[in-house]
Computed example of a mutant assay.
Amino acid sequence: MATADPVTVFENQRRRLFGIAYRLLGSATEAEDVVQEAYLRWHGVDPAAVAAPPAWLAKVVTNLCLNRLTSARAQREIYTGPWLPEPVLTGGDDALGPLEAVEQRDSVSFALLTSMERLTPAERAVFVLREAFAYSFREIADVIGHTESGCRQLHRRAKQHLSTARPRHEVSREHGRQVVARFLAAARGGELERLEDLLAADVISWSDGGGRVSAGRRPVVGAERVARFAWAPFQRRTVDNLVVERFGGEPTLRVVEVNGEPALVARAGERLIAVAVFELAPEGIAGLRVVMNPDKLVFIGRQLSRIEAVTGSSP
């Protein structure tokens, strides 16, 4: 390994490093920045002096993320309205690694990433490395500079903090797409009762505009209220409270997979203006998280453009 081309060594690890950084930060653009900074640090060392490059790089990325998380916590406390992670296209793009098992998909779900905001940076690092990447506590201790017993305690506290999060229910990708397609058809048709039937009684909807665009600053709770919230944009010829004429072109909505969950992407003309991620449960749609902050749509916008350039059509 030590005699291999340094660039090749790094590129072989890039996807895993991005996966670690994204799960720690909840931001794809920041994760890209962290991976690039890790590359610069790798470029500045003698690879022959690094016994285990994958472990060395994971340690660098994790600690860069820990530094960012400390300042991010303060920024998110004054964030305008609900904070949601940056959406990442999955299902045809393996940017986040394999997501075939429910545990793999859960590790990047919006519900879990949002819940992890209540963790300290160290708790979050231990939880991600242990749960998403199956690191041993000894390996984690080496990465974050804690004792092995200390990492066990951090992991235990993290799981306790996350115990109140909704349990994830396994739903096939095809079933998820069908549910979202029915949701879209009911909303477009103004069929409020049909729309409400697709929602769990205690469904919650969050909108993240970050103060950049008009968005609800409080969650909408309950099937009736969420149904009306979802239906209203179609009646006002807007998409998620954004006036279509402001961007030019007619609105288009497509069903895709985001963070391992069914989702809708909304465009006005060529511009991506919203991504709505659905959380499904046996009783219906349990959560709807709508990202409208333009800064958070940059990464997924590039993903969509790359796929369209290759296939000639939207995913």
Rank of each mutant, 00 (worst) to 15 (best):
A2E: 14
T8S: 11
T8W: 09
V9W: 04
I20F: 04
L24W: 09
L40M: 14
R41P: 05
V45A: 09
A52R: 15
A52M: 11
W56N: 07
L64S: 00
A72S: 12
Q75F: 07
G81L: 08
E86G: 02
L89T: 02
A101C: 02
D106E: 15
D106S: 12
F110M: 06
L129H: 02
L129V: 03
F137K: 02
E139P: 04
H146N: 11
H146W: 15
R152F: 15
K159V: 11
H161G: 04
S163H: 06
A165Y: 03
V171P: 01
R173W: 12
R173D: 15
R173M: 13
E174R: 06
H175S: 15
Q178R: 14
V180Q: 00
A181W: 03
L184A: 10
G190I: 03
L195P: 05
A200I: 01
I204Y: 01
S205M: 12
G210K: 01
G210I: 02
A215W: 02
R218I: 09
V221W: 08
A223V: 01
W231M: 14
R237P: 01
D240P: 01
N241I: 05
L242A: 15
V243E: 14
V244E: 08
E245H: 08
L253G: 00
V256A: 02
L264R: 00
A266E: 03
R267A: 09
G269A: 09
G269F: 09
G269S: 09
A276K: 07
A281F: 11
G284T: 12
G284Y: 09
A286T: 03
R289Q: 13
V291P: 00
N293V: 05
P294Q: 03
L304G: 02
S305R: 15
G312F: 01
S314E: 09
P315R: 11
